[in-house]
Design a protein around this nucleic acid. Structure first.
Lengths: 199, 199
DNA sequence: CGAAAATCTTGACACCGTCAAGATTGTGAC
DNA sequence: GTCACAATCTTGACGGTGTCAAGATTTTCG
């Protein structure tokens, strides 16, 4: 469904334009009018597909979560017999996504999207992503790699929070320059994770 | 230095007004003109004290970090002989600050402030805060409460990242409702921390 | 006291999100 | 096939926003 009738598949073109502007100018430079211009339509054309700006941002975030989800799944699926490897590769994929799509990552988690529950597909994909994390964590618990002292969902938030926190702090420039000279974000995040592992 | 001459201590009044608007309407409702109006001055009066909006946001964030820093110090100073207690109380203070000043917390860490290194007092207080964390971590390492397998600054980023990540995910609504029904954010964060402790 | 600096107001500009009205184009019933 | 209808897009307008220039007011200080 690439080119359709009137002007093409405008809805997706707008999302794509938004992602590009986000990558080029950051969240501060993201405006509906610029998105419209980049897609080659007039300034209020987006209102045929999105009721407001928040809705476009929700779509961009949803797109980001979809990418993150598929990236995670691709990273762990080859190692269904090796939970520890799944965990390590999943973390690597998570960090890589954050580094390669910094501004999308920020918009996904930075509270720019105000009423997330109003966007069902966003809720769907983000909770599905969390479910994926829980599965890996549970497998690790069953394999004795992570402690089984708590339900998998609680443990999952802890592990995910660990990685997410380190990545977020690093992206915000809150990790000291001297530390980032000695280690990559990947290494710092992996080190934090290693603290929680049993073996 | 409460009331001065012309209109008073406008600079701080603007920061305060900004904090209030932030708490009342969130980051989306924070505009220079509203801040000015709330402080009782004309729409471009702020430009006598801040070169642009980013600079006001930097001042608000700096104020937030100052509060966070003093809160942390107040929480840990009574326990200078007990590193573990310092760590636990520090975490409690961190989570409490995030819960009581949600929007300020978000602005401090959400990348709304774009070129943080341009604001020396922001850099100063935030790095000072990190230094405080490192000190506690080092004390814990010396007391055998945290592993000494890594330098204190690396371990500090891991621990801080753990707490920060859990708090951020929770504030963004990324922690499942069912989990939040069973545990407070405090508890979830503390659980994550406990995973990293030796004793 | 008077000049210079700091502070604040007024007015303007371009940009923004949003809406209303209308033009254009695709779709489906007959 | 054609014709009404729905979807899509444009144009123009509105109030709100960040920012700047010009000027008024007030404080400071030699």
């Amino acid at each position: 469904m690439p080119k359709k009738y009137h002007h093409g598949d405008l809805k997706n073109a707008l999302i794509q334009a938004g992602v590009e502007i986000l990558a080029k100018e950051g969240a501060g430079g993201l405006s509906l009018r610029k998105v419209a211009q980049r897609a080659g339509v007039s300034h209020s054309a987006p209102y045929a597909h999105f009721p407001d700006k928040q809705s476009l941002i929700a779509a961009i975030s949803t797109e980001g979560f979809t990418q993150l989800y598929t990236g995670l799944e691709a990273a762990i699926s080859p190692y269904s017999k090796n939970p520890k490897k799944q965990l390590l590769e999943g973390v690597k994929a998570y960090v890589r996504f954050a580094e390669e799509n910094t501004d999308t990552f920020k918009i996904m988690f930075s509270g720019v999207l105000e009423k997330e529950k109003d966007y069902p597909s966003f809720v769907e994909i983000s909770s599905q992503t969390f479910k994926l994390v829980v599965e890996v964590i549970q497998a690790c618990q069953n394999a004795g790699i992570l402690p089984a002292t708590a339900p998998a969902d609680l443990m999952a938030v802890s592990v995910w929070g660990q990685i997410h926190g380190v990545v977020s702090l690093a992206l915000e420039g809150q990790v000291s320059h001297t530390l980032l000279n000695k280690h990559t974000i990947q290494e710092i995040a992996s080190f934090g994770l290693a603290q929680m592992l049993l073996t």
